[in-house]
Design a binder for these strands. Structure first.
Lengths: 330, 330
DNA sequence: CTGTTAGCGCCTTCAT
DNA sequence: ATGAAGGCGCTAACAG
């Protein structure tokens, strides 16, 4: 491995001078000729700075952690990509990890930061408590969480949430405006979608309708299928079903087909997230576009600003735009 | 930050002894009582090993790079997740980066390894030449590439490929067995799908049929749509279309709808990859399941074995299973 | 059994 | 303008 020492030896300078020259030195202490000489030698020898040594010395790894439940869930690739796109520009690398929503793993990945492997953490956590973040806060490690607004994150942790309750409220009202009165919601248990259920309930109560929610273990396509089957099995006959996310909505479409119910004629269906598949299914799915890629990018900017010290205000909400995408399922 | 030095001071031992005790020491050199004492102090003080310092000292980062064109392309999340799942078990973290298929970025991410930030690289590269890997090989850094079989990777680089030509051959024969004689293929330019085109052509020639390929800029849904439009615009009337991947096949379905052609009655359609959306579209898509998650996992195993020195044979192919999934589009 | 010593490669004062 | 020296936190001989 070629080190600064090797360069120094090659051209008869000290390693310290090489280090300075390589950094370009802000205040022209090193003469241009020397800088050129060093650069040339570095190139000739095939020198590569050792990022690990730099990190140890400067206490900056230029690496961030991005913690998601499951990258194969179509919601997350866009979030991650948006996050990476900003990091990439600033020369930060991103370690991506999956938790499957398990508390044990979520905790474990907090260690990435505590062990100095990353400079900061961005994550979607389902099962952490405020106290779990204390060690991070004590070490001054920035953490930005995307989660439901009901979460009670401690000071020192940015809590970045897309208010699903407003969006849920809006789309419920949209369904009501179409003339639906018997609207049921299907959802998974836990996760940032809880507030979507809240928004739905609120909207229903406001206009004097009774809400009805069917939970499923998972917020997956299969979960949506199961919840829909259970809904009808227990005798409900909604004219519209709101699913907590698009995957569940797509599972719902499949269930309705087996029940010989026509969408949207017999039952209207709407979801959340606008994942790519939602405009590929038949009928195409009405949904709420959440702009995940933008959310990921905003989170990255927030973290980078915090690391550079140019950001001090604590986030408790982000004014994230969303929009109802009307398609053929309603 | 609590260091081994702090622990040493706390209980009146030397830092070196603390290091040994913390490592558990294989051959019982350190008495159990001491180990316990050190562990307790470490816990009490909230000690966390500094992974960066460890990495500098041992020259092992326990981090791997996973280079993909675009994580939002539905093919890749499964590949990445499979890769991560094995790494996770072995305590390796994974830096995931997107290249968008650009040579400049592909080269750039090779630097992650050259700069010592990762121990090895797994990647899907579209525009690298054998010579680009020389620096890696010289440094003894393992690299595993997933790519088309036609690629000519240098010795020292594992070249891990799923032979798309066999699969393409098979599915073409499957279409022929359904009675189709006018079969066209749509594909993007470049990338690991080239060999799929080869397999298709070979199969056609073998039975004396003439092949016809329509290329598009991108191998995306839009690319599939465009290619299909162009195909018919130039007067071809295939009874079956083979798309280089599912995204293109789905775009093809959309184009056929605008052309008022019924699938599979007027035109049959088949794709590759079995992405999740392929069984959500209407009609559901016949495709070739490539088991990306397994592929990612195998790649991870190969890399880890190489790092541990328990693997020496060079990979030039992987016997990866694939299977034709028959659905309603054929 | 435990401590001393010697770096890993780099950055950063402080002298010269 | 350059070099010498110290140290980031840790591991790994080698002495005692």
């Amino acid at each position: 491995m070629v080190t600064q020492k090797d360069i120094a030896k090659e051209i008869g300078l000290s390693q310290a001078t090489v280090s300075l020259a390589l950094q370009g030195v802000t205040d022209g202490v090193i003469p241009g000729t020397t800088i050129e000489k060093v650069r040339k030698a570095a190139r000739d020898l095939g020198y590569r700075p050792n990022r690990v040594a730099q990190a140890l010395r400067t206490n900056k790894t230029y690496t961030l952690a991005c913690v998601v439940p499951d990258i194969t869930n179509p919601y997350y690739p866009f979030l991650v990509r948006g996050f990476q796109s900003i990091c990439d520009i600033s020369g930060f690398d991103v370690i991506v990890v999956n938790t499957d929503g398990k508390r044990e793993k979520e905790l474990n990945f907090l260690n990435l930061a505590l062990q100095g492997k990353v400079d900061a953490i961005f994550g979607v956590f389902f099962n952490l408590f405020p106290i779990d973040f204390e060690p991070l806060i004590k070490k001054g490690i920035p953490a930005v969480c995307l989660g439901p607004s009901t979460a009670n994150y401690p000071d020192g942790v940015d809590h970045f949430f897309v208010d699903g309750s407003f969006a849920a409220n809006d789309i419920t009202n949209y369904l009501i405006s179409l003339g639906h009165t018997k609207i049921s919601m299907i959802a998974g248990s836990g996760g940032p979608q809880i507030e979507r259920v809240d928004g739905y309930k609120t909207a229903m109560v406001e206009v004097g309708l009774t809400s009805s929610t069917q939970l499923s273990e998972e917020f997956s396509e299969q979960g949506g299928y199961d919840a829909t089957q259970q809904l009808f099995a227990r005798g409900e006959k909604p004219s519209a079903i709101l699913a907590a996310n698009d995957l569940m909505a797509i599972g719902c479409l499949r269930a309705l087909k087996t029940l010989s119910l026509c969408v949207p004629h017999d039952v209207a269906v709407a979801g959340f997230d606008d994942i790519p598949a939602s405009e590929l299914v038949t009928p195409t799915l009405t949904t709420v576009r959440m702009h995940q890629q933008n959310i990921g990018a905003q989170a990255a900017k927030k973290i980078l600003n915090r690391l550079s010290g140019s950001e001090s205000s604590l986030w408790r909400t982000g004014p994230f735009p969303y929009e109802i995408i009307q398609r053929n399922s309603t």
